[in-house]
Every structure is written in C-alpha cells, then in structure tokens.
Design a protein around this nucleic acid. Structure first.
Length: 721
DNA sequence: TTAGATGAGATTTTT
DNA sequence: TCTCATCTAA
C-alpha cells in the first residue's frame, strides 16, 4: 500500500502491526490520517478481514469521517467494518446479548431528561423532598458512580453525608425501575457488556474471535468501563492500537481517566509507543502559546509540537466590560478580518465554555446580520415536540416504558391529569401489573366519565400500533400515528410563532424517519430509535454553507477553523465537581484551554470581560487571570476596543420589549409590586413583578399604553413616582 | 380534576 | 430562557 503521504513517524506507526501500539498524537498532527491509513493497511496487506476490525471513536461525527476516508483509501465501501462510537457499538452488541441480563432486545435508551423524570417519580414514591436533593444532582451522582463501575453496595461504603445515603437509596430503586421499564441509561450501555462478559466467558470469547484488531481513537477520554471493555476484548490476540493526546483529555468530570493513556505501557508491557510532533494545522505562535500553558501540568507526557506552517500572527487579547461589548468586539474583529484578509464567514468559529454564553453573541450577530449557527444547546432531539413523537414510538416498541407512557398519555391533552395517572400507578403496583395494562380497566380505580374513556382509548390506540409494528415500515407507522393522534393538528391550531416552529419540527422528525429508511430499508423503528438516542448536534455540523460556527470548547474537539474567538475567559470554574480535586480541575482547565487554542489554523482572539463574573467562580479566579498569564508576552498582542451603546431588542416571539441599558441601578430593594414608576423611555408604568438577584434583577412593568404586553426591563432606569 | 396563567428562581461541559 | 410551584377558572 502507498504510504507516501505520511511522514516517517506516521508511516512507522501505520506499519507496526505485530504488537500493541500506543500513539501520542498532538493536536493537528494527523491523528485521523494515521488511523485511517492503518485500517486500510491492515486490509490491503491481508492482515485481517474488514469485518474483523473494530474501530471505536468518541463521536458519531468522527466515526463518519473515518468511514468516509477509509472508503476513499480502499476505493470500496466499508459496510462490513465495525466503525462507531463506544455507545453505538455497545448498543448493537446489547441487542443480541442483553437477554442474558433479563432485558428484551427492544430495550429503550434513556437520556438525561428521561433519567431525571424517572428519578423524580422515585423520589415522590419514597417521599424524598426536592429540597433535600435535586433530581439533577441525584442523576449526576448516579452517573458518576456508574462511570466508575461503583455499584450501590460499594457506594454505600464511602458514604459521608445523609444526602449521599439518600442518593444511594434512590440509586438502588433507580436500577430496579430501569429494568422494569426495560430501559438502560447511557452508562449502562457501556457497563452491561462488561457484566455479560464477566458472567459468561463464552460470550466474551465469541467477541474476541469476532474482532481481531481493535483501534481506539481519543483514548485519553476513555472511562473505566471503556478501558476494561477494550482490555478484555484485546486480551487474547493483543492486536490493539490506541491513539490519543493526554493534553486533550477534557472529560474527567464525566469519568474519563487520563491514567488510561498514561498507563497503557503498564497494561500492555510489550507495546510500542510512537509520538507524533509535527503539527500541520496551526501556526507556531498559536502552538507555543497553547503549549506554554499546558506544560505547567504534571500529569502528562512531555512533547514538543512544532508547526510546519511557520510563525504566523500574534494572538489577540481583547478586554471588554461586559458580554455585550464582548460580542461587539468579536464582530468588529471579524469584519476587519473579512476586509483585510478576504475571509468568509465559515472561516470563523466562536468558542465558549458554557452554552448559555452564546446568547449575547447571538443578539449581536443577528443585529449585524452576520449568519451564524449554534452547535449544541437545546438539541433537536431534546425538544419537547420531538420527544413527544419519539415517546409514542418508544412506547409502541416497548410497552414497559413508563416514562414514555407518562409523557404521551396526556399529549395532546385528552383530560388525563396527574391525579388519574397516580391512581393507575397505585393500581398497577397493587395488581402487580404493567402500568400500561391497567389503563384498559379504569372501573376498579374509580375513574369514570371522560377520564375513564380517555384511558381506554389511549390503551387501544397504543395496542393497535403495537400490532401494526410488524405490518408497516417505520415511516408509514410514524405518519399514521402522528395523523391519528393529531399532533400536527394540535400545533397548527395554535396561532403563535413558537407552535409554528414545533409544527415544523414534527414534520422534520417524520422526514428524518423517511431519510433513515432510505438509508437502511430493512431497519425497524427500534433501529431508528437507537440511532436517534445516540445522536448529537455536532454530528450534523458541515461546512457547506457560509456561516460563523458557535459552540462550546468541548464540542469543538477534532474540528479546525482558520480563526477562533475564545470568549468569556474571565469565567471561572465551579468548584463543585464531585470527581476532581483542585489540582485535577486546574490541569483539566489547562487542557481545555489548549484544545480551544489548537482548533485554530491562523488566528486566535482571546476575550474576557472585567465586569462579569459568574457566581461560584470567585474561589477559582478564572481562566483569564490564571492562564493568560502563563502565556509569554511575546506571543500576544493587546487589542483595544471601545464601544458601548444602549440597546433595544424586540423579542418577536412574545412581543415583549427588552431594554438593556448599561449599569444604571443595581438593586430593586426600594421597589415592590404595584408601585408606580417612571421609565426613561417608556414613561409611566406599574410594577407587576420583581425577580432575580444581584446584577440580574428584573422588573416587569405594565406601561400606560403598553396594551397587555409583558415588558421586562433589565438594568433598567427606573424612578419611583 | 384539569388546564392555563403567573410569578419566582436557577443556570457546565456530553455519549 | 427555561422550569417549577401555586393559584384560579372551568
């Protein structure tokens, strides 16, 4: 096979196939290239057959890219190859094997919000008030335990607080409930295969024989379960190749263990290690700045990346007062780059730490008519209307799924409220029946009239489609169902923008089923649901259209852009991560910073605001104060920027008018509901509501000529009259 | 008993 | 912006 396009180091890494291989691949060093060449090499040289290769990646996007490139190299399709994310490969494995754990193959995959719904039900059942623990906290902690393979029994040993004890009680019931619902969560997807392998060595041996060569991308981000999975599968043949960069490990909070890559040589003592240090992406200014920060970490392998692209421009540092000014600064710099360097919108990416930080940017971009696309945030498949449609499908496929049942039983509203569902739930426990099976017979529960009729009708409807599963294909069934349930009609009747959006989204989900069926004509609804559960927004990112991309630093991993804006750098960390201690948090933040900088090919702008600091961050300082200082001055240049204007934003959705005026008053202590106030612009009005705290106090005011519109004023100029 | 309105409060990163 | 608890009308 022709390996001329590789440098010597890359070539050696590709050709080494007789022992475990560890490749340290620094940012932009051609990691994907090595992996794809290696897969092609294995096949072309006849070392293994395509179907004997297992290649795991971190995201669907990365898997798609890998498939595409391997296909191009082999001039041939890659359908036989097992290239996918850990989660999707495990989901497929479980389809065949989960019966060994007492689930059926139509099991549901619960996402975060499903998990939280289930936890809320459990908490209500065992009388744990939401004030003692938040359902979200419970979910995070359970997920953390699972990612470290800590079962409730072992978790009990390390209990310190009453809260922990309560969480573990919920953890036990939660696991049982999942099983009753024939459902698994994301962590189970990884943990269950391990459990099956441990219980049944014959099954393990089957997969060891099936997958003769294992390649793992982004190995630094594997957690304990993923590590053990790979280790077990490779134990026999020891044909394994892992690629990663310890400096880009940014998922510690999710259980990823950087020790997995650092200790690979211990786990596979006969392994051979390669280090790729030629960078083909960024300029040296960017690379040196990024490395000068991450070099302060102690848990890392020393490397010295050098760019083949020359020195490049200095990094720009911009200080502003607040997030609005910051957004303006981004636009200013962006327009200058377009003018001077003849760039187009899709040369730019704006990165931030948290999704919420995108709002101010969005406002400014819209006002300046600059096209942008936000990746992440509320994802398509997490929208209410989409989850509702999927909820119906999930229930039909898996009648045990009570979370989907509760979600759909009263949508569109059919007169079945909380009280009625509670009665059914109690009855189902009394009779030791499925919740779904109780609906058919409302009489013993003393549910009569409208509610009783609705229950029977709902039961009949779901049963009907459950039987149709074998007769109709996924598209036909989904369309018939949405029609019969009247979801589209429900949204069409409403006459507001939001519901128009929802209408469109329902159509879009139907289309996506069609598209899925085109791709995989033999597939079932269960297959569709599986794919959808494991999909994220970044998977849909593409460069065909001309827009600025905005996303979190985490989402940006693996991508590259000519110009990167890194905003909100004053923002510190939350010192509340359960997993990490201070040193680990600091080191992971440095790596996050390193990842962000090395996304850029030519130019980086660092932005921070002096008057903004999120609560909780004070104890840590923040990236700006710590990490920008770690960059030598000769790599940076201060760019000054001044502009502060009064803004007026009309929210077209609600008709509300938002006024933002820079810091005039900071507290509303003197005001109360019912007070008459005078506003600098809108005139006289009456206070209807006060809320928020600190700088974010808001006041709702009804003005004389304000019709019935809701008016919200932030940082308002109000005078009591 | 349900549906809708209203006010109060919260907000990391993701497979 | 979003979610949740509480109140009110039907």
């Amino acid at each position: 096979m022709d390996l001329k396009k590789l440098n010597n180091n890359q070539k050696a890494a590709v050709e080494a196939v007789d022992k475990p291989i560890l490749i340290f691949a620094g940012a932009g060093s051609g990691k994907t290239r090595v992996l794809t060449y290696k897969i092609s090499y294995l096949i072309k040289e006849g070392i293994v057959k395509p179907e004997e290769i297992l290649a795991v990646t971190f995201t669907n996007k990365a898997a798609a890219v890998m498939k595409q490139r391997v296909a191009a190299l082999l001039k041939n399709n890659v359908q036989d190859m097992n290239i996918g994310t850990f989660h999707s490969i495990c989901a497929k494995l479980l389809r065949n094997e989960i019966r060994h754990l007492g689930f059926t193959k139509n099991y549901a995959i619960y996402d975060r919000s499903d998990q939280i719904s289930l936890i809320k039900i459990i908490m209500a059942e065992i009388n744990v008030s939401k004030n003692s623990v938040m359902p979200k906290t419970v979910r995070n902690k359970i997920s953390y335990y699972k990612s470290k393979l800590i079962d409730p029994k072992s978790a009990l040993k390390s209990v310190n607080t009453i809260q922990d004890k309560i969480i573990i009680d919920i953890y036990i019931i939660y696991n049982n409930s999942l099983k009753e619902n024939n459902a698994v969560d994301f962590d189970d997807l990884l943990n269950f295969p391990l459990e099956i392998f441990n219980n049944n060595l014959r099954i393990l041996s089957k997969y060891q024989k099936l997958w003769k060569y294992i390649l793992v991308d982004e190995y630094q981000d594997t957690n304990k379960a993923q590590f053990l999975l790979v280790k077990m599968l490779a134990e026999k043949h020891r044909n394994i190749c892992v690629v990663g960069d310890d400096d880009q490990s940014i998922y510690g909070w999710r259980g990823a263990d950087i020790r997995n890559i650092l200790d690979f040589e211990k786990d596979f003592p006969e392994c051979k290690t390669f280090t790729l240090e030629n960078n083909y992406r960024s300029t040296n200014q960017i690379l040196q700045a990024a490395q000068s920060v991450v070099r302060n970490n102690t848990d890392r392998v020393d490397k010295d990346l050098l760019s083949v692209n020359g020195d490049g421009d200095l990094i720009g540092v911009i200080e502003t007062h607040d997030e609005m000014e910051e957004a303006d600064a981004v636009i200013n710099a962006l327009q200058k780059e377009i003018k001077m360097k003849k760039r187009t919108f899709n040369d730019f990416s704006v990165l931030y730490r948290t999704n919420a930080q995108s709002r101010a940017l969005e406002d400014s971009f819209r006002r300046s008519a600059i096209p942008y696309k936000i990746i992440g945030g509320t994802r398509f498949y997490e929208r209410k209307e989409v989850k509702d449609v999927l909820g119906y499908l999930r229930l039909i496929v898996n009648l045990d799924d009570t979370i989907s049942l509760r979600r759909t039983i009263n949508f569109p509203p059919r007169g079945i409220g909380l009280k009625t569902v509670d009665k059914c739930f109690i009855q189902s426990i009394k009779d030791n029946k499925k919740l779904f099976d109780v609906l058919n017979n409302p009489e013993p529960m003393k549910i009569r009239g409208k509610q009783g009729d609705s229950l029977i009708a709902f039961h009949k409807l779901i049963n009907k489609y459950n039987e149709l599963l074998i007769k109709l294909n996924a598209s036909e069934l989904a369309r018939a169902l949405v029609e019969e349930v009247g979801i589209l009609k429900f949204y069409k009747q409403q006459d507001n923008l939001e519901d128009n959006d929802r209408y469109d989204n329902v159509l879009e989900i139907l289309n996506s089923i069609d598209e899925f069926m085109d791709r995989k004509p033999e597939a079932s609804i269960a297959d569709f649901l599986e794919e959808v559960s494991l999909l994220t927004d970044i998977d849909e990112w593409n460069t065909d259209e001309n827009y600025v991309t905005m996303m979190t630093v985490h989402s940006s991993k693996g991508l590259e852009f000519p110009v990167v804006f890194l905003t909100g750098l004053e923002d510190g960390l939350f010192p509340l991560s359960i997993a990490l201690n201070e040193k680990e948090i600091m080191e992971e933040e440095r790596r996050l910073f390193y990842v962000a900088l090395t996304r850029s090919q030519e130019m980086v702008y660092l932005l921070y605001a002096t008057d903004r600091r999120r609560s909780g961050s004070d104890s840590w300082g923040g990236l700006a104060s710590r990490f920008i200082k770690e960059i030598p001055e000769n790599f940076m240049e201060n760019i000054s920027f001044s502009s502060a204007m009064t803004r007026k934003i009309v929210n077209t959705k609600t008709g509300a008018i938002k006024m933002k005026i820079k810091r005039t008053i900071t507290t509303f202590d003197d005001f109360k509901v019912g007070d008459l106030v005078e506003h600098a612009i809108f005139g006289e009005g009456k206070i209807r509501a006060l809320s928020g705290s600190g700088e974010n106090q808001r006041v709702g005011v009804a003005f004389k000529d304000g019709l019935k519109k809701k008016l919200i004023v932030k940082f308002a100029k109000l005078k009591k009259i």
